[in-house]
Design a protein around this nucleic acid. Structure first.
Lengths: 189, 189
DNA sequence: TGCCGCATGTAAAGCGTTACATGATTTC
DNA sequence: GAAATCATGTAACGCTTTACATGCGGCA
């Protein structure tokens, strides 16, 4: 479970309330890396506080509590990031799944889906380029927090766009009559 | 939930038992797109059968049941793939999360992590290149099922590798004394 | 004063993971 | 005959999602 580390990472940038963290998940982190709703976030903050990895540093209006990461929390985050990913399965990527299943469609349908993927990738790349242009600065301190990630996302989108274009080209090169199931039966999924 | 569609997609290639599907998840689909264990797969096959999207076409030794997708199942898969992704949040990608949190580390630690990411990406790309070389063939029929996906994965790995190299270069260009929190406080995550 | 956004919380239902469990068949 | 693999299943626990719920504060 990565939610506690996502929270530690956000709090490592600056202290924030559960509500502010929820917005961060909705608007940036959650759109690209890890989504969580407030009903997951609030209890998790409580657990992190019990473990001494975060602490309440201020209480504001409407019962808001500002959390900050402790030294122990920073250590935990650091060791999690430095420990080998382990990657223990758990892959759940619906977009990639769609690409895997694309060949189950006839070429006309596949072209439709690929065209949509290419358009989405272009839109995503444009959005990130805009964000990057609005937030210039060095790769250090608070401002740098999203710079590496933004560049990463941009390159991913570009790669998806190029792949979709390539795939459309591959599909377009063959006539409908080229479709045959006679190929190597020892397929890979 | 994408598991039913993943199963329909695999069965659209060829009928298989729950056990064979479990292996497919362990070895190919589950490593890149969507993971599921047999305790999820067997009940889901039962539900799909109840809905008439798959059917048992053969029973073998040890009580094994071979499932095949029905016409209704193919229709369901097709409409799912053609329907707009919706993308309804639900992003859960631990690797991307790690990249997001990278800036919470000091440059030396960040370099360590990035070096590991670059090595992993290179290894993943090499593995896919080997798989692709072992399974040549046209982008049609059963053999084509994994060709688009393999090319996609390869390009993703290459993009990750190039990004990590770029990021290392960015970090390396600055001396430790460059670290400052004086940058734009109106950061983006 | 009325509305919107802030800010947090509880409860139920569903799903997935982990651990446990069983037996048949093939292979050496 | 033993071991490995095939093949499926149940049960408990925990997390996530969804729906429901409450109240304060700022602003027009």
């Amino acid at each position: 479970m990565s939610l506690p580390h996502a929270l530690l990472g956000l709090l490592a940038v600056e202290p924030a309330s559960g509500y502010a963290l929820t917005k961060a998940f909705d608007e940036s982190l959650g759109r690209y890396a890890w989504y969580a709703g407030h009903t997951s976030i609030y209890p998790e903050l409580g657990r992190l506080a019990e473990r001494g990895l975060v602490e309440v540093t201020a209480e504001g209006p409407r019962g808001s509590r500002t959390y900050a990461v402790t030294d122990a929390g920073r250590d935990e985050l650091r060791s999690w990031l430095l420990t080998r990913p382990s990657e223990a399965g758990k892959v759940r990527n619906e977009s990639v799944l769609r690409m895997f299943l694309l060949s189950a469609l006839d070429p006309a349908d596949a072209r439709t889906v690929l065209t949509g993927i290419a358009a989405d990738a272009r839109a995503g790349a444009d959005e990130l380029r805009t964000i990057r242009a609005d937030h210039p600065g060095p790769l250090t301190g608070r401002n740098g927090f999203g710079q590496l990630a933004a560049e990463f996302g941009l390159r991913q989108y570009e790669a998806v766009h190029e792949w979709a274009t390539w795939a459309l080209d591959q599909l377009g090169a063959q006539t409908p009559d080229d479709r045959t199931d006679a190929a190597d039966p020892a397929h890979t999924f």
